[in-house]
Design a protein around this nucleic acid. Sequence first.
DNA 1: AACACGGGGGC
DNA 2: GCCCCAGTGTT
Length: 374
Amino acid sequence: MSETKNKGNMARWPQELLQWYDVNKRDLPWRQTKDPYCIWVSEIMSQQTRIEAMKPYYENWMAQFPTKEALAAADEDTVVKAWQGLGYYSRARNLRLGVQEVMSKYGGEIPQTRKEVESLKGVGAYTAGAILSVAFNQREAAIDGNVLRVYARLYAVQEDIMRTAGKKAIAALVEETLPYNRPGDFNQALMDFGSSVCIPKVPRCESCLLRRWCKADALGIATELPIRIVKKAVPIISVVTGLIQNERGEYLLHRRPSKGLLHSMWEFPNVEVPREALVQDKKSLPLIGVEPLATYWRNAGAKIQWQDSSITTLRHVFSHRCWDMEVYRGIWPDFVDEKIDRIEETQWRWVLPSEFTDLPWAGPHGKLTVYCKS
DNA sequence: AACACGGGGGC
DNA sequence: GCCCCAGTGTT
């Protein structure tokens, strides 16, 4: 379809929204710049994350990795540590890979076509559109949860927005209504509007500047939209964990695998116990969590002295599972064996509490450090 | 198309 | 407590 044809049919509300944005736009750090690297970082960091939560991370990130060159040169652990607490750690890993790719494949210049930008690690359809429209002023859609919700209501889209049909319907509407002037501002205006007026549960239709154009409101179904499939219940998993200290005051830590949940992050030895498996002696279970060493321990005659009762219990909820953690204290046997000093495999380390802050902690395990004493 | 992948804030 | 957020990658 030709541009000129669309221009004539352009809806009026987008310009209305842009005017609202001029007055009401939030003052965010990355809106002070057009530096595509900064825009890129802000977009990745804000995925599935509330702006207020990520703001301080963004400031810190820019202080630590002010340029894509700095980020490309940083090692992965440093990068993941800077992401600690934000979740979805693949974002950090992929962002680093992405800028490295820009250095190696694009001569240090972030590409400006959707195809190329979208090919960068961690950059999908949404982020590509955001970078192209905000940093490079291209008329590209950036469809996220806010946009899906706003359009579902404005045009009373009844299809499930989590499904292909719903997404396609809204993508067509966005393409139709995306203004030719200030596309980047428009995309950001949709975000601000979606997070302050057209909010998820109870939209603020009384004070909505777009109410005149809202089909869902006209039909009285604004609160019913958007339609989205219900997600299934998350499995609950018992996790028995041991804080095992040796006579030097060090704690035994384990580095999680480089793939999967909380990849490459540090944790205390633990074992996941299926709900069904009722075990009498729970304190022996963390031993199973250190399977690779268990044989060696037994050969060495090691017997961890476990404290009778658990130090604490805590529940940690992820998006797709839930850990019910039970934590026990254990003392590494006080006998001399040189081999014990040689736990040098990268997955296992004896670490002093004073060094804990340097580590990227696997979620709830970071909270357990308060129970460690030097 | 379905699922894996964190954590926190709003209500 | 529940919802869901400036999504992407893998299977």
